[in-house]
Nucleic acid binder design. Structure first.
Length: 507
RNA sequence: GCACCGCUAGCUCAACUGGCAGAGCAGCAGACUCUUAAUCUGCGGGUUCGGGGUUCAAGUCCCCGGCGGUGUACCA
């Protein structure tokens, strides 16, 4: 059963630990052997002098076969190795993906170290080497090792470098995706850049970044089904926030007139390529602004983010398609746009029965409890939104589906609300906020009644919020924008690729 | 939620109408001082997602369950 053919060294017997794969057993055996021989496979520190990126940058043009005289010590993960009799090649890369070739030759490291390298180093190991920078005979920039050691030994083999990891492994073990895929590394950084851009854009406009509670005693600020948890000390149920809105408005009441919160929201609903149960959200509120101002600022925030993250307003998606986020974006109004698309006049007064008929004509499934505004929104999605090509604002929504928005200043039964559609999905929504405490109370009471009728998404009646409004909130514009969705709009990725660790069912 | 497809070695994938479970890379042993998906020789590596059933015989067919993907419905 063991391999008895070797005559130059003992074969490495797979670790007898029963359930580990053969290759893990072999690597554990190597680890033990290193420890016994006094070589630390996991040193606390390694004597590096340079990053791989710096070595690459400092030596852009070394002629084939020439040495530079510069000695460096670098560390990286072995991603590819080629051993010949007395000369070994390996490619190591940094976390950022900068890769450089290293060479170990008999005449520089000696027979023992060369043999140790060949027998013990596996693809996936972190190693350090010290040596002279030069170029191989084929012209490949390389570090010619005089000395080497481990930075951290890997016990598991890396996936094959030249095949795509399957979707499930990429999501469940994101660290492998990050090791193997430049795109995964790129999107992780693009997310950071996007957040930094939004913060810079808002703080540059005199906004304060505030933090609002995730654990809430009431769920409000959006129509969505919340997660429920329990606090033992007070013996009460708490909700994970579905939106920060009501707290940000309390800030505005309190005189923090420009506030934003970049936050994580939780909604106990479906998950698909555009929805995650926890998702990133930016909300910002500005006193003495209305929904027109907020639309302009939103466009500027997105364009500034595109410029910073992609370097251009003509962004390229992963499928190669390009999308122009530049210029001003078209605006359409809900009722006129729907009327034009249908070839018949639709107004806030159009009876439910007629809206139901129009829905049924195009096979939109409807719920008998839906208010007319909801039917209008469904028709809008089907007839208008589905035909958008570039970023588009849709504005002036029906009142009965927007309980936190103020009535339109000149039109009856619509509210000053817009939705911004980019790439086929809703990226942001903005309001002229409802600040009249009496009307707000009526709207929330209606929500509470819907809730009592069994609507799990209806907002709770938040007395504390209503009382805050009664102290007077200045006229205010507000916006909510999906962070993950902004990444999606910039890159064309699915939502789970924009989140490092999206929720996945345990396997 | 519903429909369809998938799950096989560490990874990526094969396996015909049910008939000895395979390849490439990775691993082990050997050779090789200029490779770069190195090459050459040899060798190991499997609870075929889990459970049940049909059958002389199941990766394959049937049933139940799990996870994933795609489409579809709803929420952002």
């Amino acid at each position: 059963m063991s391999k008895a053919t070797a005559d130059t060294g003992p074969p490495i017997a797979p670790n007898s630990d029963s359930d580990v794969p053969e290759q893990v057993g072999v690597r554990k055996e190597k680890r033990s052997r290193l420890l016994e021989s006094g070589k630390d496979p996991y040193p606390v520190q390694v004597p590096i002098t340079d990053t791989i990126a710096a070595v690459l940058a400092d030596h852009p043009d070394v002629p084939a076969g020439e040495m530079t005289g510069t000695v460096v010590a670098i560390a990286g993960r072995v991603i590819f190795a080629r051993n010949t009799g007395k000369l070994c090649f390996a490619n190591i890369h940094s976390g950022a993906g900068d890769a450089i070739q290293i060479m170990l030759s008999l005449d520089r490291v000696g027979a023992d170290e060369l043999a140790a390298w060949k027998s013990d180093v596996d693809i996936g190991d972190h190693v350090w080497i010290r040596g002279e920078v030069g170029a191989s005979r084929r012209g490949q920039l390389s570090v010619f090792a005089d000395e080497w050691g481990y930075a951290a030994k890997a016990l598991r083999p890396l996936p094959v470098a030249h095949k795509e990891l399957n979707e499930e492994t990429r999501v469940r073990r994101r660290y492998l995706d990050l090791i193997m895929s430049p795109d995964a590394r790129k999107i992780a950084r693009q997310r950071v850049e996007t957040l930094a851009s939004l913060r810079a854009s808002l703080t540059g406009r005199d906004y304060l970044e505030v933090e609002t509670p995730i654990l809430q005693t009431l769920h409000g600020g959006a129509t969505a089904r919340p997660f429920v948890t329990h606090m033992n000390a007070y013996d009460i149920d708490l909700y994970l926030r579905i939106a920060p809105e009501l707290f940000l408005k309390r800030c505005v009441v309190g005189g923090l007139e420009r506030v934003f919160d970049i936050n994580r929201n939780f909604r106990n609903e479906g998950a698909d390529s555009t929805h995650s149960p926890e998702f990133g959200m930016l909300e910002f509120y500005q006193a003495y602004a209305d929904y027109n101002d907020m639309a302009r600022i939103t466009r500027e925030l997105i364009q500034e983010a595109a410029q910073r993250v992609c370097g251009t307003l003509l962004v390229t998606h992963v499928d190669g398609s390009t999308h122009d986020l530049g210029g001003k974006w078209p605006e359409v109004r809900v009722y006129p746009a729907l009327s034009a698309a249908l070839g018949q006049e639709i107004t806030p007064q159009t009876p439910s029965a007629e809206l139901v008929r129009l829905c049924e004509a195009v096979d939109i499934k409807i719920d008998p409890n839906w208010l007319p505004g909801r039917l209008v929104e469904e028709l809008l999605e089907h007839h208008v939104v589905a035909k958008f090509t570039g970023p588009t604002f849709v504005r002036d929504y029906p009142v009965d589906t927007s309980p936190l928005v103020r009535d339109h200043r000149s039109e009856a039964d619509v509210v000053e609300k817009w939705d911004l559609y980019v790439g086929g999905f809703e990226l942001a929504t903005g309001y002229s906020e409802l600040v009249d405490p009496v009307i707000q109370r009526e709207r929330l009471l209606a929500q509470a009644q819907q809730s009592a009728r069994g609507d799990v998404e209806a907002m709770a009646l938040d007395e504390d919020f209503l009382e805050a409004l009664e102290y007077g909130m200045p006229p205010t514009g507000g916006v909510g924008m999906g962070i993950d969705r902004l990444l999606m709009a910039l890159t064309g990725l699915g939502i789970r690729d924009t989140i490092l660790f999206p929720l996945v069912k345990p396997s």
